[in-house]
């Protein structure tokens, strides 16, 4: 019986589903493995097209060149600062918006919610938003990258939906003790919402880590370029770092072999900018799945 049960579990459609899942995983995984392999490979093998999923002529030259570049490290530090501060601000603001809106008795709730949801479909437009940010004096500051998108409507609605699902009795238990709504939020709702909050940390964290267009638009001080802007520079300007700029004189000696080509630098840059998020994901995954589905399904 047991054998029959087991064979039923992995037979027929199950095998097909698993094969499809393995195939689709491979579709996503292989380009990344190829990128990692290129980032560690000697340009000679890259140029002759013989690098696939394992590095050939292993070298750390591309990483050395990138990490030697102070501006790259500055961008890394700035992006970390942006992500930490941005996530904190977004979490606070989203929570403070979601909690009252989760209360059915809130006066004008539908109007407020409607106004907030409206922003999911319509924005102020590029130039008016730019003028607003400029007049607020935020140009060239972190706040230009945080405040215009501090509350993501979708995330706020997910939080609001989750808060609504918390049994009212739990809140009432502390309210009868005299607790005001803010204390209820702090002492009851938030401790019960760790999965959703962790999910929001990922959502907002990835968003801030990947800040790109607002970084291009609002930031003119090179010391405040985000990592994605630097990545874009690297990927887009084929001659950006190859033309002897990142390299010391020894790398550029006449007749010496080029240690870097566009391909391995670009790959190393992609690995450097994506690695922190990839490292973070496994630790947050159980919260992520739980938080996203719980918030999405309860209505």
């Amino acid at each position: 019986m047991r054998t029959a049960g087991r064979s039923r579990a992995v037979g027929g459609p199950q095998v097909l589903i698993r094969c499809l899942l393995i195939l689709s995983s491979a579709v996503f995984l292989f380009p990344f493995l190829h990128t990692v392999a290129q980032s560690f490979s000697d340009p000679r093998f890259i140029l002759s097209g013989s690098v696939f999923f394992l590095p050939r002529g292993p070298t750390l030259d591309a990483y050395r060149a990138l990490l030697k570049d102070l501006s790259m490290l500055r961008s890394l530090a700035f992006t970390v600062e942006l992500t930490v501060l941005g996530v904190a601000v977004s979490l606070v603001l989203s929570t403070l918006a979601a909690f009252p809106l989760s209360k059915p008795g809130l006066k004008g709730r539908n109007l407020l919610l409607g106004a907030i949801v409206f922003t999911m479909y319509f924005s102020g437009g590029l130039i008016p938003t730019y003028i607003l940010v400029k007049r607020l004096g935020f140009l060239d500051s972190l706040w230009a990258l945080i405040l215009p998108g501090a509350v993501n409507t979708f995330n706020m609605v997910v939080m609001m939906t989750y808060f609504r699902g918390i049994p009212k009795e739990l809140e009432e238990a502390v309210e009868v003790e005299g607790a005001r709504p803010f204390l209820v939020l702090l002492r009851v709702v938030l401790p019960l919402s760790t999965a959703t909050l962790a999910t929001m940390v990922i959502f907002y964290g990835v968003g801030y880590w990947n800040t790109f267009f607002s970084g291009l638009l609002y930031i003119q001080d090179p010391k405040k370029y985000t990592l994605q802007v630097r990545l874009y520079q690297t990927l887009d300007s084929v001659d950006t770092m190859i033309n002897g700029q990142l390299l010391g004189a020894s790398d550029r000696e006449v007749g010496s072999s080029a240690k870097l080509v566009a391909e391995n630098l670009k790959s190393a840059m992609v690995v450097l900018t994506t690695a922190p998020i990839i490292v973070l994901y496994p630790f947050m995954q159980r919260y992520f799945v739980k938080g996203a589905t719980v918030g999405a399904l309860k209505g």
Binding site: K68, D69, L70, S71, M72, Q220, D221, P222, K223, R230, Q233, T234, S237, D239, T240, M241, N243, Q245, L246
Partner: peptide, 14 residues
């Protein structure tokens, strides 16, 4: 036009 070409030892574009 910032093409990211200024060597870090030389400062930055500004």
């Amino acid at each position: 036009w910032d093409r990211g070409q200024v060597p870090s030892a030389e400062g930055d574009i500004t």
